[in-house]
């Protein structure tokens, strides 16, 4: 860890203008602290959003829910309304991390976590994503890595469980920028694969702050997760399935790509709103269309098909 200043700004609206590439926001800190300790991030200053009036409320809004950016995963997990109305989100947060971490971690921060790739996180390795060259995972230990879109510069998977659920639910984030401007962005558009110029998994600028997450209702939704132990592990594969208000079925996988991965082939194979056993069989088989697994992670394909099948069966 390198030394940094610690700042508190009471008005959330005043925070974005203070942010720069080296003055960064701090919320739950469950990911940022581990990055600081590994010297992956070396900020000059941290602005503690918890000291501000940034949103902490869970509000019913027309057609869904609005969650303040500082809402913790624990509160989502235990919120009766969310559990009934957007079970995919409640199930995703309840399978993330541990109770202690969920008590700290915020929903907005969860979306902006960096990958847990063990090369990216290793201080002794300078991979492309960490600002260096090459991807040691591609030819190395890649059993946890991506199976889709694996010809890019990075094969790390996105670590968030809620992100897959939120994309399946069609959720959006509200973003406040340093000039005082506010915009609405689909979570599906917030999270994008890193590029040479932007080696991070989201599109936010240095002075952007997420202020809220808006989630449309989908009582028929679920999130299933496979880990190598019962709890406290990142997803090998997760699948979110959600039936929207207009009957559209969205399927999104975690643990398989740089970002939450829409299972477009599976959605197309459903060929209509009726989730019949035959349609579910077809969709599960198509879930791995386009997959290009690495040497050690071919097992993720049958896993993805099983979880897709079970998720669809659960919301049918």
């Amino acid at each position: 860890m390198t030394p940094f200043d610690y700042q508190r700004i009471p008005e959330a609206a005043a925070v974005p203008a203070q942010l720069t590439p080296t003055v960064r926001p701090l919320a739950g800190g469950t990911d940022l602290l581990t990055r600081l300790k590994a010297c992956l991030d070396r900020p000059d200053a941290l602005v503690d959003l918890k000291a501000s009036d940034l949103g902490r409320a869970i509000d019913r809004v027309d057609g869904g829910w609005r969650l303040g950016a500082l809402v913790t995963l624990s509160r989502i997990q235990h919120h009766p309304g969310l559990r009934a109305d957007v079970p995919a989100l409640a199930e995703a947060v309840s399978q993330a991390a541990t109770p202690q971490l969920r008590n700290r971690a915020t929903i907005a921060g969860n979306l902006l976590q960096r990958p847990r790739c063990w090369y990216f996180r290793n201080e002794r390795v300078q991979c492309w994503l960490a600002g260096g060259e090459g991807c040691p995972a591609r030819s190395g230990r890649n059993e946890h890595h991506a199976v889709f879109d694996t010809d890019g510069p990075c094969v790390a998977t996105h670590p968030s469980d809620p992100a897959a659920a939120l994309v399946a639910l069609g959720a959006t984030v509200t973003v406040l920028d340093g000039g005082g401007g506010e915009r609405e962005l689909a979570v599906a558009d917030l999270l994008v694969p890193p590029t040479d110029e932007r080696r991070v998994e989201h599109v936010l600028a240095a002075d952007d702050v997420i202020t809220a997450v808006t989630v449309p209702s989908a009582p028929r939704s679920t999130y299933l997760k496979a880990m190598d132990r019962a709890v406290w592990a990142f997803a090998l594969v997760g699948v979110a399935a959600a039936v929207s208000a207009d009957g559209e079925v969205r399927l999104v996988a975690s643990g398989v790509a740089n970002t939450p991965w829409r299972l477009a082939g599976a959605e197309a194979a459903l060929a209509g709103p009726g989730l019949t056993p035959e349609a579910i069989d077809r969709a599960a088989a198509a879930a791995t269309d386009g997959a290009a697994p690495l040497a050690e992670n071919g097992y993720k394909l049958p896993l993805l098909r099983t979880l897709t099948h079970r998720a669809l069966t659960a919301v049918a």
Binding site: R116, W118, Y119, N122, V125, P136, G140, R141, R229, A230
Partner: peptide, 22 residues
Amino acid sequence: DAELGLPVNDSLEEYLVPTVLD
């Protein structure tokens, strides 16, 4: 990692000891 000669799961996050739920 054979090429780098580095243990990649050198933490309690990645080296999976059983939890009480296991």
